[in-house]
């Protein structure tokens, strides 16, 4: 990749900041990808001011190949594909933040909304509100769902006990 790898040297502080930013973005995108479209649509409609934006990559639906590993941990193999929709937007305002949306399924509007919230969340004056009104409640909801499911599965755990045998 010599022709295009233009690695900039980062100071330790910059690198740490970048890692934290990356982790926050991963969490944000994972949560948004799991949100119902209607929830995102409502959150978008309820924003005090909605910025203008343009599509850098119009929303499209395609396939992503999913892979497994032999034995769960061994060599990779192609298992089958999954529908994925994606979209890249740029906000019109001075920050011109670029937002990306990659979501499971064929809902292109949802990919667009995820990209919009991803872009908005990069702006300080929106970040706190999005966290409070959208991301935190989503996370709580998902955690609750997971916990309930786990508790139902845990209730099917087998408690082995050994019967007293007949010989003395």
């Amino acid at each position: 990749m010599s022709p295009i790898a233009q690695t900039e040297t980062l100071s330790a502080g910059q690198a740490a900041g970048q890692a934290a930013g990356q982790a926050a973005r991963k969490r944000r995108l994972a949560l948004l990808a799991r949100a119902e479209r209607a929830r995102l649509e409502t959150a978008w409609a309820e924003l005090p001011q909605r910025p203008g934006y343009r599509m850098l990559k119009p929303a499209e639906t395609g396939l992503v190949m999913l892979r497994g590993r032999a034995g769960g941990v061994g060599q990779r193999f192609n298992l089958g594909e999954m529908t994925v929709s994606r979209c890249v937007v740029v906000l019109d305002d001075e920050g011109a933040s670029m937002g990306v949306g990659y979501v499971q399924g064929r809902d292109r509007r949802k990919a667009e909304l995820v990209a919009l919230f991803d872009a908005l969340a990069q702006q300080d004056h929106h970040a706190a509100q999005i966290e409070r009104d959208l991301l935190a409640p989503l996370e709580q909801h998902l955690n609750r769902q997971r916990a309930v499911r786990a508790a139902k599965v845990a209730a099917t755990k087998v408690d082995f006990f050994t019967m007293v045998r007949g010989e003395d």
Binding site: G62, L63, V64, M65, L66, R67, E81, V84, R86
Partner: peptide
């Protein structure tokens, strides 16, 4: 095709 996922 949009990409290849990481192994599950």
């Amino acid at each position: 095709r949009l990409g290849m996922a990481e192994p599950l």
